[in-house]
Design a protein around this nucleic acid. Structure first.
Lengths: 342, 342
DNA sequence: AGACGCCCCCGAAACGTTTCGGTTTTGTTA
DNA sequence: TAACAAAACCGAAACGTTTCGGGGGCGTCT
């Protein structure tokens, strides 16, 4: 294993200057810098991370902790997250440490252990809750982290998020502008921040459209087809006036909704309009829906690059303003939305 | 962050003795050892991994490199591997570094980079090929690794494996003992070592049972339902004499076989016997098959603990004999196998 | 009493890197 | 040409741990 000393010897320089040359310091001539880099390359020099860490306090390691649950396997989310982040961090020469906890293992001690020996520079937090204990712990321990999503109304942490509030406000407005009054929101799991933001946007839009907020119809559940199917059957079989539009938190939910409406003999969009948000997690082509599904489109796979960038920034102490990023989205109107019938 | 120095000061000992006490060295009195450990505990001392690595040459990091392919998401294998290994290594106080490569990225340079800076102590290799370039590279670079499976007839590397040869020889023998002569093997992907071992066991059993090896019927393909379905339809629609028994490389294949036989109006086990190997990867209950499926049972989830143990052994230089482990399996006869009809 | 062995302990070096502070070399200006 | 600044360089210390070689103190055997 070639070390800095070897490179220095070959270059006829001191270890100091060699180090400075490789790290682009100011007080080394351009010629020397080039020459040293050349030599380092031919010698296949790779700085020893442990040594560097020892003096710099950085390890180049970032971590993701994921609780092991049954549905880990079923949804494609885990794969998407893990492979996306792994790829992005390796592009940045950082090592991606994954930790899957035991099913019932409390999660804070895991972070405590990982943080304790100073092995990990920072964390990515996915699936944040309204009252997130991981974030609280890491803030207190002054360990850098970046959140996929936002925690609280005015977060002090690094994050990458999409504007869930705005997206769902937009969807709801669009539907109400078409003339819909009884609009359902099939939301995600209740205490997740994204679900809260979405229901918030939905309610705001109702108010904007002079629909009484008491007419809000929200169901919460996992992002599955069966949630969409069961909710729909339930909503259309009760005594209450039927909804004319359904907003789905995901394409997979929409799939269940389509099945239910089909089984109930209801036509899309004549009887019911359906709108969904598409994060491209489910391997389902939205064009393959019949009729084609109207969506807001924001691929989750576009999250990993900004997330990695933000975490790198957070670790190297960049100002917070650069570490809070909100991603774009597109609205794609297809055939599943129309004005209500009568 | 409390260091060894802090502990030493509080114990009134030298740093040397403190280190030795904590690491259970011989020449430190039992009383001192206890006292030091006590102090380390109250001070929440965690050894700095980078410092330790610097002197010991170990980082406590182990790696897994997985190529990103489409079917990563679909089968549950990836989740099982990653969460299993992650859990096992964290139990051993080792960090698990995951690297997912880009779809077309060549894999050897990735290992080269990971090995280069000495950041990673050893690797787990999954899904080995007959002629595995990763293993060749790591051997040459003298980097410890453990293989999930075996490469070549007389491997010099650490591994955990099940005895695929014996298992499939046993299945085949069982069927031929029942009187079957035309036995099909729906095997895995061709150049995988496990598939080779299985077809080997199958052929040997044919010879043992005095069935001409030219009567061997082997199909190779991915472990999917559609492979089972298509192969079965194909086998039973040709002009050749029909098979009376089908051996499936996985339960998922068996699922496809059941569908096909059902569609063809053939009864199990009257017309065709079906036997499968069950690694518990597919979330399919074998009891839920109708008729219940006969299997050899060897849960893949039992692999991660021995794999982690073997890699740890390989890193700390244990003799090869301790690092080559073959796991157990059970044979479970149910209702899908019987003597052939006439 | 001297020699020996054992138990417990310690100082110092080493791992490979970064960086602080200082020194030499070079170039510019009066 | 002397003075001075800037450019280029270097030695040494530091990061936190392990380990090598050594050394007192004490009991036991000859």
């Amino acid at each position: 294993m070639t070390t800095l000393k070897d490179v220095a010897k070959k270059a006829g320089l001191s270890i100091t200057q060699t180090s400075r040359a490789l790290n682009d310091h100011s007080d080394v001539s351009a010629a020397t810098r080039e020459r040293v880099k050349e030599i380092a390359l031919t010698l296949q020099y790779r700085p020893n991370l442990s040594a560097r860490k020892l003096v710099s306090g950085r390890s180049g390691l970032v971590g993701l902790v994921v609780p092991r649950t049954k549905d880990l396997a079923s949804d494609g989310l885990f794969i998407e997250v893990v492979s996306g982040l792994s790829t992005e961090f390796s592009l940045r020469d950082m090592q991606f440490v994954l930790h899957v906890t035991q099913p019932e293992e409390p999660i804070i001690p895991v972070y405590k252990r990982l943080v304790g020996n100073g092995a990990i520079d920072g964390f990515v937090l996915i699936d944040p809750r309204e009252d997130d204990r991981r974030a609280a712990f890491l803030s207190k321990a002054k360990v850098p982290f970046v959140v996929h999503g936002r925690i609280g109304p005015n977060p002090k942490h690094a994050y990458f998020d999409i504007d869930n509030e705005k997206i769902f406000r937009g969807i709801t407005r669009h539907l109400s502008a078409l003339g819909h009054r009884r609009i359902v929101l099939l939301n995600g799991i209740e205490d997740r921040t994204y679900a809260e933001a979405r229901s918030c946007g939905y309610r705001h839009a109702l108010v904007d459209s002079r629909i009484d907020p008491s007419e809000a119809i929200i169901r919460s559940g996992a992002m599955t087809e069966s949630f969409g199917l069961i909710s729909t059957v339930d909503l259309f079989s009760g005594p209450e006036p039927r909804p004319t539009a359904i907003i789905c938190g995901s394409v997979r939910i929409a799939k269940g909704v389509y099945q239910a409406l089909n089984a109930l003999g209801l036509s899309i969009p004549r009887d019911v309009s359906v709108f969904a948000h598409d994060d491209h997690i489910a391997q389902i082509q939205t064009e393959a829906f019949y009729p084609a599904l109207s969506v807001t489109d924001a691929p989750m796979r576009d999250s990993w690059k900004p997330l990695a960038a933000c975490l790198e920034g957070a670790i190297s102490g960049a100002p917070l303003s650069e570490l809070q990023v909100v991603g774009p989205y597109r609205t794609i109107l297809r055939q599943s939305t129309a004005a209500p019938c009568q």
